[in-house]
C-alpha cells in the first residue's frame, strides 16, 4: 500500500506501472486521476490546496484500510497533492489492484468518495475576480451513505 501527500507532480505512467507489476493472482487494476478544471465563471488562474499535515496521512490510511477490509484487494495506492496547482494539472491519483474488476472499481469509487469528504484537504480557487474557498457539496456527503 502506498500513500503519499506531496506538493510535487507525480508520474502517472510510472505509478500505474509500479502498481500493476509483480502480481500473478490479480486480474484487475483500476486507476483514477483527479485534474484541476476551470469551470469557474471567471478564469481560473490556479487552485491552492491546503491540508492538515498531522492528520492527513492517518486519515487516508484509515480510509484505505477500510477499503481493504470491504473488498478483496491486492494493493491500494493514493497520491494527493497540495499547494498551488494550475488548470490541467493532476491533483490526485487512486489505484486499486484486485483479483476481479468489480472489487477494483468499487473500491476505487469508495476511496474517491471518502477522500472527498473525510480527508482534511481544502481547495481555494484563485480567479480573475479574486479568491474563493470551494464549498463542500451536499451530494458529496450524500455519496457516503451508499456505502
Amino acid at each position: 500500500m502506498k500513500i503519499a501527500v506531496q506538493t510535487e507532480a507525480f508520474d502517472l505512467g510510472a505509478e500505474a506501472s509500479a502498481l500493476a507489476q509483480g502480481h500473478r493472482d490479480m486480474g484487475a487494476v483500476v486507476t483514477f486521476i483527479g485534474v484541476v478544471r476551470d469551470l469557474a465563471e471567471s478564469d481560473l488562474d490556479r487552485m491552492v490546496i491546503e491540508h492538515y499535515p498531522g492528520m492527513t496521512l492517518k486519515a487516508i490510511q484509515a480510509i484505505a484500510e477500510d477499503a481493504k477490509s470491504r473488498w478483496n484487494l491486492g494493493d491500494v495506492l493514493v497520491i494527493h497533492r497540495y499547494g498551488d496547482l494550475a488548470p490541467g494539472e493532476m491533483i490526485m491519483m487512486v489505484g486499486t489492484v484486485a483479483p476481479h474488476r468489480k472489487d477494483a472499481f468499487e473500491a476505487a469509487e469508495y476511496l474517491m468518495d471518502y477522500l472527498k469528504s473525510r480527508a482534511p484537504f481544502w481547495k481555494k480557487e484563485i480567479t480573475s475576480d479574486g479568491a474563493d474557498w470551494v464549498a463542500a457539496k451536499d451530494e458529496d456527503e450524500d455519496a457516503l451513505s451508499r456505502w
Partner: peptide, 11 residues
C-alpha cells in the same frame, strides 16, 4: 490538539 475547519474538499 483541537482543530476547526470547514467541511473538507479533497479529491
Amino acid at each position: 490538539e483541537v482543530a476547526f475547519f470547514p467541511p473538507m474538499t479533497g479529491g
